[in-house]
Structure formats: C-alpha cells, structure tokens
C-alpha cells in the first residue's frame, strides 16, 4: 500500500514535471506570508502577477525553444525592440483605440520576424544557438536604440490604464493570465509541442522517425518570437513607457525560470506552466530575502544561494521520478 502511494506520486511527477516547483512555490508563498502578512493579501498577490507577467511570458517563450534543445539569448533584445517600437508608434500616431490595436499587430509582426531571423541562423544556417542568438540580441538591441535613442517616451494612457483596470471587479492581468494559460493548454494538446519535444530528444532519431527537424526548430523560434512580443506588451503595460535597455537583464532570468520549472536545457523535457512558476519562485525568493531582514550587503548572495537550492530540490525530485 505504502509502496503503491509512492509509485503514484512518482507517476504524477513524471507526467507533470512542474509539481516540485509548484510545491516550492506554495512553500515560498506561505513563508512570505509568515514574515510579511500583507504580502499575501489578494491585492499583493495580484500585484505579484502583474509585476512578473512579462517575465512569465518571456519564460514561456524560452520554453518552446528549450523543448527542441535550442536556446534563445535574444529574447531580452526582442522585448526591448517591441517595447520601443509600439511606444514610438503610439506616440507618433496618437493614442487612439485603433492606433493601440494596430501597434499590437505591429508588435506581433516584429516578434515573429525576430523569431524568423533566429530560426534562420540557428536551424537553417546551423550556427550554434547560444552564440547565434547572442549575436542577434545585439542586433535587436541596436535596432531598439536606433528607434528610441534614449528612454523616456510615455506609452499611450489608454494602453497602460487598461492594463491596470478592473473589469467586473477582476483586474485585467488576471484575464490576461487566464487567456494565456488557455492558449498554452491548447498548444500543449497540439501535435506541434509533441513534435518539438521529440526533436529535442534527439535530432537524429527524430529525423529518422520522419520528422522535419529544421522546420520544427524554426517553428519553435517563431513561437518564441510571438510570446516575446506578448511579453513586451505586458511590460509596456506595467511600465507605461519605452526604454531601449529594458530587456537586457531579463534574458538569463527567463532561462533560469525554465530550468527552475523542471525543464532540461538538453531538450526533450520542459513544462510551460513550470517555467511560469519558475518566474514566481525567483520573484518570491527576492521578496522573502528582504522580508526576513537580510542586510543589504548579503541580499544578492542569499538570493543566488536560495535559487540554487530551489534548483537542486527540483532536479533531485525529478531524477528520483525518472529512475
């Protein structure tokens, strides 16, 4: 009986690799609430989601390339580029409803184009993803600086007021989050994600199995570009302005979140929901380190250590489950 229980829980983890990170997330929420009761009020939790929604989406974007054993170091550059492009667009044409909608379309197109460029250099030209996307990130960042040489242009009021608005008593970000989770759910059901994972498990075996490896990898980058653009929308809503340097520090956090959420950078295994949880884990660790009263000189060190420990716990449980 006891053994049976254990098997069931291991089976559960095998099917849902994000379960360890979900447990870590719940523990962190409780700890935050213990040290600062205000931090787990409904308002604060909505605030947490609204603050980290952009990074969550960026982690989602990253997950789809990690699935096929690639990596995209240009997501931060894409965020900056989309952010300054849509803000400049709204600024130039006035902030009416149609202009805002058009700017969203423009942002999606830019994101997908960036994904196409990455897919081309990585999957078709066969350059190493880590170096090639690092190079394209500099290119995207340079474009962003060309469009907006210095931070400071405000986004249209309509744009960011919508982002902070409540509809029927529920904040906009909750609708956005629900929509995104729904989208991810349908993507997960699709054949496409299974193909991505199969390709990530091994290019050769996938190819021998009759899959078009190159096409699949390019599609992964396209999806990554799409979600990076949506991430930039959230960031623009949260920050209400254009800043060509805003994405710089977000790239590596998105990679860390994928791994924290149970994804393997070697490909073939990654959970989109897990990556989103990974972002919240990073955010909550940062808050917790502050709430327990860590002296400022130690905050970076303790945060780094805590993330490392969360990583080890997750990997340990997953290894147990695979064994």
């Amino acid at each position: 009986m006891h053994k049976n229980n254990k098997n069931i829980s291991l089976q559960l983890i095998r099917n849902f690799p994000f379960i360890p990170s979900l447990i870590i997330l719940i523990v962190l929420i409780l700890l935050n609430g213990f040290y600062e009761p205000n931090s787990i009020s409904i308002g604060s939790l909505v605030g947490l989601i609204s603050t980290y929604l952009a990074l969550m989406l960026l982690a989602v974007a990253q997950t789809y390339v990690v699935m096929s054993a690639d990596i995209d170091l240009s997501v931060g550059g894409v965020i900056s580029l989309v952010n300054v492009s849509i803000v400049a667009f709204m600024d130039h044409f006035g902030g009416g409803v149609y202009v805002v909608l058009l700017s969203l379309l423009l942002g999606i197109i830019i994101g997908i184009l960036c994904g196409l460029i990455n897919g081309f250099v990585v999957a078709i030209l066969r350059l190493q993803a880590i170096v090639a996307t690092f190079a394209t990130s500099i290119f995207f960042m340079g474009l962003a600086l060309y469009i907006m040489p210095v931070a400071g242009t405000p986004a249209s009021d309509l744009f960011w007021l919508t982002y902070f608005e409540n509809y029927f008593g529920i904040p906009f970000v909750i609708y956005a989050l629900s929509f995104i989770i729904l989208l991810i759910f349908f993507l997960n059901k699709s054949r496409f994600v299974k193909t991505l994972l199969a390709v990530g498990d091994g290019y050769l075996s996938a190819f021998q199995g009759g899959l078009d490896v190159t096409k699949t990898r390019v599609k992964g980058f396209l999806l990554c570009g799409f979600f990076s653009a949506v991430s930039a929308f959230c960031l623009t809503g949260e920050t209400a302005s254009g800043d060509p340097l805003v994405g710089t520090k977000m790239t590596l956090l998105s990679v860390a979140a994928v791994v924290l959420g149970g994804g393997a950078l070697s490909g073939g295994s990654a959970s989109v929901i897990g990556s989103m949880i990974g972002v919240l884990i990073i955010g909550l660790i940062n808050s917790l380190v502050f709430f327990i009263g860590t002296p400022s000189e130690w905050q970076n060190l303790i945060q780094g250590l805590s993330i490392l420990i969360a990583l080890m716990i997750g990997i340990y449980i997953n290894i147990k489950a695979q064994a």
């Binding site: 603050t51 980290y52 952009a54 990074l55 960031l235 949260e238 920050t239 800043d243 805003v246 710089t248 520090k249 977000m250 956090l253 940062n286 380190v289 502050f290 002296p295 400022s296 000189e297 905050q299 970076n300 945060q303």
Partner: peptide, 9 residues
C-alpha cells in the same frame, strides 16, 4: 534596504 541586481520588473 533592498539592494540587488534586478531587472525593471
């Protein structure tokens, strides 16, 4: 004090 390397969010 909150002092650490962070991105804008």
């Amino acid at each position: 004090v909150q002092s650490a390397n962070v991105d804008v969010p």
